[in-house]
Simulated scan of single mutants.
Amino acid sequence: MNKFKPHLALLVCNVIWAMDYPFYTIVLPHYVRPAGMVAASLFVTALFSLIPLLWQKAERVDRKDIRKLVGAALLIGVLRKGFIMFGLSKTSPIDGSIIDTIIPLLVLLFSVLLGIDRFTKRKIAGLTLGMAGAIAVVVTGASSAHAHSHLWGNILILLSALASSVYMVWFKKVVSKYKPTTLMRWIYCIAAIVTLPFGLGDIVHADYPAIARHALFPTLFVLTVPTYIPNLMLNYALKYVAPAVSSIYTYLQPVLAIAVSVAMGLDRLHADTVIFAVVIFVGVGLVLQTYSSRKRTDHPVTSRH
């Protein structure tokens, strides 16, 4: 059962993240404007992050790491969340979920640039394939055939993936130094403080009667579920499962997001999108294979949404 629990945690958190894309599309920007949703979701996550203090003594953070945690909050809390919210308000959940799967490739690229990792022929081939597929998905957002997609929305989703990748590489040491609950508390409380002044007006002026009638469950879901709970599950799973193995579960996200979006009539699957997605998957798979034989890996703990 102990061996099963980490895989169950990975499965659950990736299913939750897959549900983000269609539910965000329902809520944004029809019922809540993106800035309001960013601020509200970060505020709720910050409140959740304080709950463990009821039974857990606060972990002391070194003064020299506070500046790093502020940077992490701005990157993964404010920028990542902002890019993905504004991006999904302008593009399709299918495109968003597919573009987001290139994060392992971007992590490799930044790791090489910082001298943490090195290229091999297989890594170069995987990076080339994956990036080509991602760029193709982004560009097709400008095509009139993709009515639910939009070029600028796809670019914002790509920028959110870039923010996640930089965070995962740049803040690796500080992330591995503290408990997951400590990191969540610092990152999301800071992010909430930064974003609340910008989103407060949209929160106040949201159409709450319309939300109650037509989008209550999706709104409550994206406010309360996608950030805090899945990230705790992921950090728990990474204590027992190699990051290369956990990355395989991310392939579930576009598959589930596509199934839900099509079933709910929010999007339509195109043949070229399927082809580009396969190209990305092959590219990411080639890169992950290079790490699968290692007993230990340099990949840091990830944080999403």
Rank of each mutant, 00 (worst) to 15 (best):
Y31G: 05
H30E: 15
K64D: 08
D95W: 08
T101V: 14
Y21M: 13
L75G: 02
F48I: 09
S97Q: 10
I84K: 09
F83S: 03
A58Y: 02
T101Y: 07
W17C: 00
L53G: 09
I98C: 11
A18E: 06
S111Q: 01
I26S: 03
D100A: 15
L54Y: 12
I26D: 06
D100P: 02
I84L: 08
R80E: 15
T25E: 08
L74Q: 02
L42T: 07
P52A: 00
P34F: 03
L54R: 14
L47V: 07
V15I: 15
L42I: 12
G82A: 10
G115N: 06
T91L: 04
Y21Q: 06
I99L: 07
T25R: 14
K90Q: 15
F48P: 06
M37R: 07
A40F: 13
H30W: 10
V44S: 00
F23N: 11
T120P: 06
F86P: 02
P93L: 00
K68E: 13
L105C: 12
R118F: 13
M85E: 12
W55A: 07
A39Q: 09
P52T: 01
V61S: 04
Q56M: 12
V15K: 02
P29F: 01
R118H: 11
K121E: 10
K90M: 15
T25A: 13
R63V: 05
A72Y: 08
I66F: 07
F86W: 09
L113C: 11
K57E: 14
V112C: 13
F110N: 06
P93C: 03
R80L: 13
L108M: 08
A73F: 01
V107P: 05
G96K: 03
V107H: 01
S89H: 03
K57Q: 11
G115C: 02
I99K: 04
L108W: 05
V38T: 07
R33H: 14
I84Y: 01
K68F: 12
A58M: 05
G115V: 03
D95K: 01
Q56T: 08
P22E: 06
V38G: 02
F43T: 15
G77V: 09
I94A: 06
K90D: 08
M19R: 01
M37P: 00
G96F: 06
T91W: 05
R60K: 15
Y31K: 03
A39V: 01
P104I: 10
F23A: 12
F43P: 02
P34S: 02
V44E: 04
M19N: 09
W55Y: 12
R67A: 15
K121Q: 15
I99Q: 00
L75V: 13
F83D: 05
R63D: 12
R33A: 14
A46W: 06
P52Q: 07
R67C: 04
G82M: 04
L108S: 09
L106G: 07
M85S: 15
T120F: 07
L113A: 15
Y21F: 15
A18H: 09
R33W: 03
L53A: 12
R80Q: 14
L74E: 01
V78H: 11
P29M: 07
F119R: 02
I51F: 13
L53W: 05
Y24K: 10
R33S: 09
V44M: 11
F110V: 15
D65G: 10
S89P: 11
A40K: 04
P93M: 05
F23R: 10
L106K: 03
F110Q: 09
I103C: 08
K64T: 05
V44I: 15
A35E: 14
S89K: 11
L105S: 09
R33G: 05
D20V: 14
V44A: 04
